[in-house]
Write a protein that binds this DNA or RNA. Structure first.
Lengths: 137, 137
DNA sequence: ATAATAAAAGATTAATTTATCCTTTATTAA
DNA sequence: TTAATAAAGGATAAATTAATCTTTTATTAT
């Protein structure tokens, strides 16, 4: 469903949110240890999340990452930042001109699944207390 | 959502179903031309579909492919044959031990989307007249 | 100021997926 | 029975994704 990088990204964001609750800034090494992801690869993903303004980074000792403040960060923002919007917008059969007016054979079978997916990604906020309690490794 | 190969596979199966309606056996060249897929790659996918018993192949002149007879072929069969059941069974965050009893942070957010997807794949039959009318290229 | 720390950046490698090419095998029709 | 046809099989190449390694830049605390 999501790329490996995107799976890591979601876990990363949730883990940083957990630490935010406790007022702690989080570094790459701690994150990759906690979510069991390769450190250097995680660092690349963190860079993308910073460029996408979902995180703020700090260098040097005491450095690390924090969630972008005063922002509602939703799952959909993470997915778009890492995987783009192919999953959310493109035809499941990869047809260029598929639409309600010119539907592919399975268009109407999948449109509601996709809408349901979008709705879930849009309504799930990364600071949701429900999210930040459960296992992530 | 699906791999490129799986997108091709679904289009291939629908196209063969269209021809079955007209009593025509279909060859790789015609198929790849009709659905706009690379011929040699399509041939590999066709081989997999034959190995998975979803198609029957015939060599030589007048050769080609037919749907496996007397079988209800569902979308889920195609997806499983090409992409396996990762999409249908694995945790969206890739966690090995994710389950209702030991849920990942997004488990319950996605479980119903997945169930909806499974239901659609299970209930969509490749010979459904609704499927085999619409554009596929 | 300087040493230590940690992220950023860039280059490279590995693995997987997508795609092509070439040879072999089976089948049909002349 | 032979030539043409079409799928099967195997090897290879290209592209994308995943992952690693090394150097640079910024920041903090001593």
């Amino acid at each position: 469903m999501f790329s490996r990088a995107c799976e890591y990204a979601i876990k990363i964001m949730i883990y940083i949110a957990v630490n935010e609750q406790e007022g702690r800034r989080t570094g790459v090494k701690e994150i990759s240890g906690a979510i069991n992801s390769p450190e250097a690869f995680s660092a690349k993903i963190l860079q993308q999340l910073v460029k996408s303004k979902l995180l703020i980074s700090y260098k040097g000792p005491t450095g690390g990452f924090e969630l972008a403040p005063n922002e509602q960060i939703k799952l959909v923002d993470i997915v778009k930042a890492i995987d783009g919007n192919k999953l959310l917008e493109s035809c499941v059969l990869g047809l260029e001109n598929c639409s309600a007016k010119n539907p592919c054979p399975v268009h109407f079978k999948f449109i509601e699944i996709r809408d349901r997916l979008k709705e879930t990604l849009l309504s799930t906020e990364i600071r949701d207390p429900q999210l930040i309690t459960k296992g992530i490794d």
